[in-house]
Design a protein around this nucleic acid. Structure first.
Lengths: 148, 148
DNA sequence: AAAATAATATACTAAAATACTATAGATTCA
DNA sequence: TGAATCTATAGTATTTTAGTATATTATTTT
């Protein structure tokens, strides 16, 4: 029932890019240092986010990644859903027929309701909301490795 | 982010006992057949539930297990928390200090809120609530293996 | 043109968690 | 006594998680 590092790192990755939205591409190496996450792992994590069109990239020297949409239009729920392969506590939440007991299963309704509650909360929070809760300057200053 | 079979089987185990509350001990073998869960696995799962005083048992021939409290006083959230080792999406939800980034972590608040939403929903549903949603007779009749 | 930088692609691996299974022993009832 | 049932402890196969490693492609700077 725990979130994987994929979702958590991925959310921080997206949040980092949100903090530098519209300032040109950022290198994964920079984010990796800033967030203390292995670069090679970030490279894996960003793939599905690119496929889902939440992130775009520029190759080559001075290249990098950037958000394809404004932070106000990206929810944490969307990020987690992409990286976790769905936002649900059980498989049967989405696909009742996946379980042969689905006809007289009394518990499925509970998992569905708990999933919905979590779902609703996560989808109500955007990257932009998160930025407002903290002090962005704290992050802007942390640029000794950033050759802007 | 998925529930383990431990929580799901465990909930069905508790629900099965709830359906036979106050009718004497039920053998795990009977529940295993009824719920189509390996007996040996149920034996593992029931241990923490006994330790947490939600279940009591009678040893020996004609022995079995039974709920230590009425179904109205047992929530699904309690069962899941016992079997999943807590009801939270991240470790930092409970123990902020567990993470060294906790001071300037913008994401922790989200995991906390989503956890709370799930928590609240699961703790609002009792075994008794679940029994009302289905047809108990359906289960009473399924007793060809039950030597009552 | 060459060198440096950064993304992309693919494959590999160690460790942990999950989902059981096996064996032996203790307890109770008939 | 013997069958049934819970209890305790250990073992194991599979899957998932959390990364690493290597090589390639694309772009910019020198």
């Amino acid at each position: 029932m725990k979130l994987s590092t994929r979702s958590r790192y991925g959310t921080r990755l997206m949040l980092d890019m949100a903090q530098h939205y519209m300032k040109g591409p950022i290198q994964l190496g920079t984010i990796a240092k800033r967030q203390n996450i292995p670069v090679k792992y970030l490279e894996q994590i960003i793939i599905p986010l690119k496929k889902a069109q939440y992130v775009k990239s520029v190759r080559g020297n001075k290249g990098g990644h950037y958000l394809a949409r404004p932070p106000e239009e990206i929810t944490v729920g969307e990020i987690v859903a992409i990286l976790e392969g769905g936002l649900r506590l059980t498989k049967c939440t989405d696909e009742p027929d996946a379980c042969k007991r689905h006809e007289d299963c009394l518990t499925r309704a509970v998992w569905k309701q708990a999933t919905d509650a979590m779902h609703e909360k996560l989808n109500s929070i955007t990257l932009s909301d998160l930025l407002k809760t903290g002090d962005p300057c704290e992050y802007e200053m942390d640029t000794e490795d950033n050759p802007t």
